[in-house]
Structures are given as structure tokens and as C-alpha cells.
């Protein structure tokens, strides 16, 4: 009954227990927010902080976050590091390969807006939001693991507000 009592307002606890009514949307987003698998996309030094976050001291796994090497198994793409113009089409393609609902977290100055390479650079994309929609920005150069954890919790919060119908069909194109 521990989990059931935490379920949102649509829950009905019938006498005797054992039966719960809720919306599919609620149960799905709740489970999704608790197992946010992310696509490993470390392109620069932010990836080191990402590794530190995944290692035992900060322990990403306790948030239910496990890295996947395949975009098709991922819910969240953590872009950790500098993205160059040469890399940009690959980021876009990986995003397109992710199954919906999908979220993007831009980690660090480079992924947010080019970072230290904003001026006088011929090769660096000024922010990945030029090519894919970004849900959460985590600033820092690089951000500390705590900041990344906070960002992932923010993704979880945003995920809880999603509606299933938002993700179905061609409506998503306008996103």
C-alpha cells in the first residue's frame, strides 16, 4: 500500500484494498519519472562530471537513471559537452531516433550556448537548442554533479506534467 497511497488524486482506495482506479497518464508518467534512462552523449569535459555523477559517490542509479548506449532505449538525452558543426547532424539524428516521450538536458555552457567557444570559433555550434528542443538547461563549466542531479530532478518534474496525447502523432512537430 506504500506506493498506492502516494498516487495522485485520481486514486480510489476501495475498502479492503486491492483495487485502484487511476488514469493511465498518471501511472505512466509516475513510473517514467522513476526510471529515466538517459542516452550517454559525452562530447567534452562535461562528460567527466557526468561520469562522476554516475559513479558511486553521487550515484545516478538511485534516481532510477541508467545510461543506455542506444537512443531507442532512452527517455532522456544528456548532451554533455561541446557540439561542433560536424557533430550537429549526428546529435539531431540520435534525437530523431529516440522514442517519444523524449527529453533533452543541455549540460554546461557549451551545450547551452557555445560557452567559451562563442566568439572567434569556426567549428562550435552555439547551443544545441539551434537543432533540437531542450527541456532543461544546467549551466556551469562544467556543472558539478549536484547541479546535474538537480537538473535531472527538474526533468522528472516536467515529465510528470506531460500528457500522453502531447506525444502522439504529428502534433509533436509543433513542439
Amino acid at each position: 500500500m506504500g506506493i498506492i497511497s502516494k498516487l495522485p488524486v485520481f486514486t480510489e482506495n476501495l475498502p479492503g484494498g486491492g483495487l485502484v482506479t487511476t488514469s493511465l497518464n498518471q501511472i505512466l508518467t509516475m513510473t517514467q519519472a522513476k526510471s529515466l534512462w538517459y542516452l550517454l552523449f559525452g562530447t567534452a569535459c562535461c562528460a567527466i562530471e557526468l561520469m562522476a555523477t554516475g559513479a558511486s559517490r553521487y550515484d545516478f542509479d538511485r534516481l532510477g537513471m541508467i545510461f543506455r548506449a542506444s537512443p531507442r532505449q532512452s527517455d532522456l538525452m544528456i548532451v554533455a559537452g561541446t557540439v561542433t558543426y560536424k557533430m550537429a547532424p549526428i546529435v539531431k539524428r540520435l534525437y530523431d531516433q529516440m522514442a517519444e516521450p523524449r527529453y533533452v538536458l543541455a549540460m554546461g555552457g557549451c551545450a547551452i550556448g557555445g560557452g567559451p567557444f562563442y566568439y572567434d570559433s569556426y567549428s562550435v555550434l552555439r547551443g544545441i537548442d539551434k537543432i533540437i528542443p531542450v527541456d532543461v538547461y544546467v549551466p556551469g563549466c562544467p556543472p558539478r554533479p549536484e547541479a546535474l542531479l538537480q537538473g535531472c530532478l527538474e526533468v522528472g518534474k516536467k515529465l510528470r506534467t506531460q500528457k500522453l496525447e502531447d506525444w502522439s502523432g504529428p502534433k509533436n512537430e509543433s513542439r
Partner: peptide, 14 residues
Amino acid sequence: PLRKGWVGKNVIPL
């Protein structure tokens, strides 16, 4: 890009 004085399409000067 590495020649002196080169300014490319994507470069934002300081």
C-alpha cells in the same frame, strides 16, 4: 580557418 585574418561565415568576432 587557421590562416591569419580569416573570417568565416559562422565566426562571431570578439
